[in-house]
């Protein structure tokens, strides 16, 4: 079930100057909460998803400005979500970042082939996360 952290701000989201929304997906609730918290701290609205299928459905339906996706998730892994979103006309050019526990080049290669725009390794610092998000959002 998709939980929109600021669902009471629907008016803001519908206005022409709507908040920038970031979808965050991780099956580890502690990491999910941490990432969401940091993204909110940076001033963005957050859409939470707790597995890959939910992330895909949420991205298609809510069209966030950026998705942060854990690589290893049940139902659909991060790579599968990226490939599926790239294949969908509404999300083909959506900025997508994979969150990985795997330091190896392999992850990066597979991820970039699947169409992700960026990678972030665990553990990550708050500053690192915020600057990558800002970079991907291109000043939005």
């Amino acid at each position: 079930m998709i939980a929109s952290a600021n669902s009471n701000n629907g008016d803001v989201a519908r206005s022409s100057n709507r908040a920038v929304r970031v979808l965050v997906a991780d099956d580890d609730p502690d990491i999910l909460e941490l990432v969401c918290l940091r993204v909110r701290q940076a001033g963005y609205e957050v859409i939470e998803a707790c597995d890959g299928a939910e992330a895909y459905a949420g991205a298609i339906e809510l069209l966030p400005d950026l998705c942060i996706l854990d690589v290893r998730m049940p139902r659909m892994d991060g790579y599968e979500v990226v490939r599926a979103l790239r294949a969908h006309p509404g999300t083909a050019s959506m900025p997508l970042m994979l969150l990985t526990a795997h330091a190896s080049e392999t992850d990066r290669t597979t991820g970039l082939e699947s169409g992700a725009d960026a990678f972030m390794r665990k553990p990550f610092s708050a500053d690192e996360l915020k600057s990558r998000v800002a970079e991907l959002l291109g000043g939005r």
Partner: peptide, 20 residues
């Protein structure tokens, strides 16, 4: 090694949060 990274990321991330 891979499996330990996520829990460590959580511990370090929440410790940072508290210290901020």
């Amino acid at each position: 090694g891979h499996e330990l990274r996520s829990p460590l990321a959580a511990i370090l991330g929440y410790a940072d949060l508290l210290l901020e």
